[in-house]
Design a protein around this nucleic acid. Structure first.
Lengths: 173, 173
DNA sequence: GTCGATGCAAACGTTTTGCACACTG
DNA sequence: CAGTGTGCAAAACGTTTGCATCGAC
């Protein structure tokens, strides 16, 4: 299953500013907001963290830590990969970003505003963003029957997308 | 999250024969069956493969490849870890075993007869086996809305179990 | 000045691979 | 005897860690 990685790579880097000025401002606001939160929690608003946040706020919705590190490193060679990992972890503690495991590959990181569920096709690697509402029934059932509370954000779901369902019947996983 | 590993380790090795003779026979039958299937598909029924299958058929329901390799290696030092990985992969192609990703740790492998869903608690690492039926509604909804067919076997679900829900509110993932 | 964050390199745990040899059919 | 499977060692992969230094507050 290298397919997913290839798909993700295809989406790849965007500069850290888009053509759309308004979108830029939103990203800036968000960055400032998180920096404040960081300070409020006894952390430091460092340059590296600002850069990492900006990259996340303006790039594709989900990327692996490595892809992120690569992009950031290209623009800011001083920012080391280990810092990206550590910072993502820190941001996750703050509830600003999340990661999900989308099948076999490395974890995917995304900003936390948008708590959708990821459906990954194990044939072609497509990632479909599903609505969290679709899972409310199961969530309720699992809570009732097993006392188990779903973490919908971290919920990695594999299966077969519409396009690939037409192919052969072999399940590679 | 080392908790899960600890839990799994607690379940650990059983010998490759149980006290129950009948269960033994079932395992033997299953092994023979798979060996035939293997041959039918142009593969070879080697000793290593038999040993690996036996270990899977008689031990705990889900184990990591490493745990499996460890147990097998203890009884059959000739069987190398790489062979376990390769063989599991081969068996999966045959539809005999499956693996699932139960959260952050390594994949869990199990024989394929029992297609249950794994609920893993990200606090304590407990693994609850849920009924596949609980997911039929979501499965239908996802198929309708996104044309996506859930692979219920590979469905890795994280959340919080009843016991841990009483603790603090921090989500470690 | 204090303490948290960073760069760097090295280790980590899991899985995969290349190669020569061994065995199954 | 053809070709698959295996042992072994080494690499790959994604991630984490130890430590000295740097920089934010």
């Amino acid at each position: 299953m290298r397919a997913r990685a290839a798909v993700e790579r295809g989406v790849d880097p965007v500069g850290q500013s888009t053509a759309d000025g308004a979108e830029d401002r939103v990203a800036e606001d968000r960055v400032a907001e998180v920096m404040d939160l960081l300070r409020a929690r006894g952390g430091r608003a460092s340059g590296a963290r600002r850069v990492i946040l900006e990259a996340m706020a303006t790039g594709p919705a989900h990327r692996t830590a490595e892809e992120l590190a690569e992009q950031i490193h290209a623009e800011h060679p001083a920012v080391h990969q280990a810092t990206v990992y550590r910072t993502l972890e820190r941001f996750e503690e703050l509830g600003v970003v999340y990661h999900s495991h989308l099948g076999h590959g490395p974890a995917q990181w995304h900003l936390g505003e948008n708590h959708h569920v990821h459906l990954t096709c194990d044939r072609c690697g497509a990632v479909i963003d599903a609505d969290q509402a679709d899972f409310e029934e199961v969530a309720a059932a699992l809570r009732d029957r097993y006392g188990f509370s779903l973490d919908i954000r971290h919920f990695a779901i594999t299966g077969t997308c519409a396009g690939c369902a037409d192919g052969d019947g072999r399940d590679p996983w």
